[in-house]
Amino acid sequence: MFHWLEKNPFFFTVGVFLVIAYAGIVTILPDFMESARPLKGTKPYTALQIAGRQVYIANGCNTCHSQLIRPFKSETDRYGKYSLSGEYAYDRPFLWGSRRIGPDLHRVGNYRTTDWHENHMLNPAAVVPGSIMPKYGFMFKKDIDFKTAYAEAKTVQKVFDVPYDKPGMPKLGTYDEAKKAAYKDAGKIVANMKNQEIKDAYKNGNIREIVALIAYLNGLK
């Protein structure tokens, strides 16, 4: 009864496919809808935060920093309340990471400030002696790509129904509106920074990568 399997490449291929596909269907599909639900009070990222998140991703911060606090006392003591599924509802992609070469960042906004990040990103070892984190001086010189950040926000709003512009949710609006709002948000961060170059750039209407990144990190709570 099994001989056909060994001789007929077509049936064999179909057989293998069924066997390997089954696990994915059973494990991933059933809870798909439930896992996609946001927690009450969880809000999508502002356009400036998305720009910061893109900087975070482009530089592979997630290769060394996790964003997932596991339900152990040793972790909640160190990083804060353990993570809940609904908190990630607007995370595309998820950034849990797989290796903690540096500490977890899921709630870093609760215990680090703008000026701490400013000093730390410029020279980590000066703030945390012994740190092996690279220096990120170039983020103080490069401008963000706000168009791509806005494009991402607009896309998730259109395609995945992310509730921008809904009552109690962040405003997105048109590109010009969003840009104005992002400039205003960035101003609050820049006001807490010391670097003169950043301030000058801001006055000229430019938002540096570091500003957006800090906006994103401060929002992780």
Binding site: T27, S35, A89, Y90, D91, R92, P93, F94
Partner: peptide
């Protein structure tokens, strides 16, 4: 996919 689903 978003969040936990993306992770899965």
């Amino acid at each position: 996919y978003a969040g936990s689903n993306d992770a899965m």
